[in-house]
Design a protein around this nucleic acid. Sequence first.
DNA 1: ACCCAGGGTCATA
DNA 2: TATGACCATGGG
Length: 218
Amino acid sequence: MTLLQVYQTLYQHYGPQSWWPADSPFEVMVGAILTQNTAWNNVEKAITLLRSNHALSAQSILNTPTSELAEWIRPSGYFNIKSERLKNFCTWFLEHGGLSALNKLDTEALRHALLAVKGIGPETADDMLLYAFQRPVFVIDAYTRRIFSRLQMINGEEGYEGLRHYFEQGLADYQDKVSLFNEYHALIVIHAKMHCSKRPSCESCPLESMCDFQRHTT
DNA sequence: ACCCAGGGTCATA
DNA sequence: TATGACCATGGG
């Protein structure tokens, strides 16, 4: 079983996902912070509140008192921490000259700069790199670990960077990596919600024939 | 009432 | 390096 075959199976079953659901790259990045360990449904409510308060720009977020910002993003959970993280990110964003200036950095430099922001870890940074900056970076999340260890393609104990390299190397021959990685991660998330959450429903799962789930649990 | 979600930081050993 | 505690809402 290859990474490309798994991708094709998911794509044929679920179709194109056209991620990331947002109106602008900046909104992608805000969403990436708000969705940390949180259901996307709750993030949408928070973003709607930010939009209705005209707080979907770096400057307007920084102009908002942290306590008020926390109220607006309350539905996304962890609202006190996340309001701090949003402000950290916005300060960084403006100090680096905004989107156009950041886009001139190469991918490694941009990734390093993102990871220096308090509140942005590897997955959040890679969400931003792939879905806001269109860089060929494969996003690793808990679903990726779960699905591919059940497929016995990884053991699940690898570190984040190790897994990222595994996926990026395994798909190195592919032409349009940004589009492929974009769809692939989206398909992993959609598929996991349907079939591979911590309470799996394996009936009519498109990966059933390759999946090892029963042997793992019994 | 319990489990989980499109993580990350910090203190401790 | 590797655990554990903590953050907090809303849907199933």
